[in-house]
Nucleic acid binder design. Structure first.
Lengths: 84, 84
DNA sequence: ATGCATTTGTTCGTATGTATG
DNA sequence: GCATACATACGAACAAATGCA
């Protein structure tokens, strides 16, 4: 599935990205332990600033879905999809 | 009481500001419903960037201590000091 | 009511520090 | 040492909401 950011939409870009990344993780597009695209990749791929990407990722970090590791990247938590 | 930010300290500026504002609110320096100093005031008063002030305020918003209103300012929540 | 000033919200660009490999 | 990547910080800009004249 694809992540698309509508810069002219009503929802802020960071929220769109956070929502879509959350959906992708929940769907299993990114499995627990998986490495997410880098800030630079997300930034370049969707035409939004690194700070905005970081804002989106910060939301998911606060939710406990992902975590960042300096020098390595951003990963999906093992507890991202607790057994329903 | 005074808020002082040590730019050369080990703790990041946004965390220092968040901690000290949280303490001030908990202490009652800012009562529930009170208006906090504006971003510009906090920025100028402590010699830190507006973005850094917002980062600090975002922490307290996430904690549910304060909330912002466009065009008016940032307020202390009524539930800021739930009865222990 | 129209406009202006203030303030928050959001976004972008950039730079530096730190940690990893 | 070097490349990659996150964390922090600064500066700047525009939009939207609010209040007031």
């Amino acid at each position: 599935m694809e992540i698309t950011i509508d810069t002219h939409g009503e929802e802020p870009a960071y929220k769109q990205l956070a929502d879509q990344l959350r959906a992708a993780i929940t769907r299993g597009d990114y499995a627990p332990g998986d490495l997410l695209p880098s800030l630079k990749q997300l930034s370049g791929a969707h035409g939004i600033a690194i700070a905005t990407v970081q804002h989106a990722l910060q939301v998911l970090k606060d939710e406990g879905l992902i975590y960042g590791v300096s020098g390595r990247g951003t990963f999906v938590r093992r507890a991202a999809r607790p057994p329903s």
